[in-house]
Design a protein around this nucleic acid. Structure first.
Lengths: 194, 194, 194, 194
DNA sequence: TATGAATGAGTCTTCATTCAT
DNA sequence: CATGAATGAAGACTCATTCAT
């Protein structure tokens, strides 16, 4: 990894929680210099502009989420157990482990949807990838007879994502973890019925 | 209605779609003066500051949503039909009728959650009110024997909201209405099973 | 007194302490409406602009000061005793009785001197009048043999005023009343030597 | 001296006469950009806010005054002569040499007294320092027998300052130098009697 | 590469003043 | 006379971005 690449990575890691908390508009170049200790010139030497940082940060946040999820999934043998990882994991976020700023996909999706085209595009790609990964797991489960033949993988993928994102959003706004528990329990029940 | 009240209302109506599209941070006073045709001084003669406008706009957007939903609900007789209004209505948003900027509750919730306390509070109250209204309908349905006795109203309310918000978010980001259709169909199936 | 005159007087009285505290620039039309309970239109119906209010207020503050001083002076018989009223009176301002905002002449003089011509003019006239009144008293004292023949009335008037204004200024900035005491005592000693 | 320090100093020097003339409230950021030729961003890159500029300017004005006074004082041998420098110097201000805007201590003291805490504090410190320096000189004069043993240094310091500030104020408001002459002559007489 | 000083358009907000009612 | 809604210029301050060093 060249020095340039290392600095880029360093900037991304240090600013990731800020972008996820304050959003794209809410995060200023000053926030970024403070978080990194670099000067403005230093930042601009490594990124063309704020957009580029935001996109890199989004991809980083998304990838980190994927890695964390996949590492849990790979521990499980059956596809039902793999899917059940998700409600379990998000239930585990109760308390301090809740990812700083919430779900990066939803945050970016909501903020960027009508304004920042580039960000919207990467959020869209991330979301589609996420849907696909659920579709893949469900299909695999259907193939080996774990899940009923009549279930539609995409329909179920969308339900899983909606319940997760709904749970995060409702919990963050209300501050009440009972909503997270309720929704993740419903999700489990739902998956057990696949 | 005094002139002052009329102007306030006028400002709210003209800026409501902007706030819902660009968000609180993204909406500038210049946007507001352009949308209303008033000068900055004129705006500040009617609102103490941008916060106050944002809150008034949120309440307006939320109320308008409620009114629209309630007018549909009141047409139906059974509680199951009343609940089924929601997927029907959101399905009807396919195309241009989709409310400008998406769901005000979710938008405000996501943007305000870590930064603007006042906005977060009103978003929280709106969300709780919405949950309550579903809980109320489901309880009524249980009382008159339409719904199974064992279903938990709050659990179901949360599922309904999550599927709706998930549908809006996914549809907006991806631009694909098939996701809205899929999720609203799933919601219908779910409600029929209450 | 016509209603118009009464309203003018009312506005002046209510805003006098504000102008003397916050100064001309620091006092806003909003301050004035709040203090009077009138609307902006109401204020402008009685005064052409802020300048006119400021001048009227200054004259009011100055006159009130003169009246208060004269009422004390008239109680005394000898001219030395009349002059000694001043250090006595200002010593009496120790604590809460200190006139709100300090000496109107000095305040206006300092703020207006390089910017507001009209205000500067009235401050100048007030100051000259004040000097004259001391000159008059000292001349009278000389005439009836109370004071030495060789003292120069104007020189002494200027010293009296300087010691008083210096005392007010130094006391206000430092917050220490010992400076007021010291200077007023010095002034007494000085007057006794006339 | 770094570039940053040079620019700070440049801003201070260019704005010092403006602040001393128009006061803190009366001096706008536009005044500052015009006087310096810098943009607003340029100013704010070197100072946190207007307060910080005002304080730096005050300290600069005060220091310059001190240096000028001290350079005169150091030329004299006896303490009486040192004290007599002051009336001489201020007499020398007749005409154009009168410091732009008057005495920074008094100006700041009067404007800041009821509003700007930070400025008031620096003005207070400056004033106390000035008093102390007179006390020091008078004590020295007493020690070596130049001045009478019974005079109180602080009392005399306050008188000197009051006569100087009174002279400046009265002269500025009335525009008549005869008042400056009269008061500085009185001050000389007074000091000769120490 | 990185620095840090500078830009200039932008932010929200307050100002004194006006005028139809 | 007084109201109160509106003006528009000005207020202090922050923004993302650039560039000589």
């Amino acid at each position: 990894m060249s020095k340039s690449e290392r600095t880029r990575q360093y900037i991304i890691e240090k600013t990731a929680p800020i972008f996820n908390t304050k959003g794209y508009e809410g995060t200023s170049l000053n926030d970024i210099t403070q978080a990194t200790g670099l000067t403005k010139g230093g930042i601009y030497g490594n990124f063309k502009n704020k957009d580029e940082i935001a996109i890199a940060v989004f991809e980083y946040n998304f990838e980190r989420l994927l890695i964390m999820l996949n590492s849990e999934i790979s521990k499980k043998k059956t596809y039902r157990e793999k899917l059940l990882c998700f409600p379990e994991l998000y239930l585990g976020f109760l308390g301090e482990k809740f990812p700083v700023g919430g779900c990066p996909i939803m945050n970016t999706a909501i903020e960027a949807d009508d304004t920042h085209d580039k960000l919207k595009k990467v959020a869209k790609n991330a979301l589609l990838k996420w849907i696909d990964s659920f579709v893949y797991l469900i299909n695999k489960g259907k193939e080996n007879g774990e899940f009923k033949a009549e279930i539609n993988p995409e329909d179920k993928a969308l339900i899983i994502i909606s319940l997760i994102e709904g749970a995060i959003m409702i919990t963050k706004v209300t501050g009440k973890t009972k909503y997270l528990k309720s929704l993740m329990t419903s999700l489990k029940v739902h998956i057990k019925d696949f």
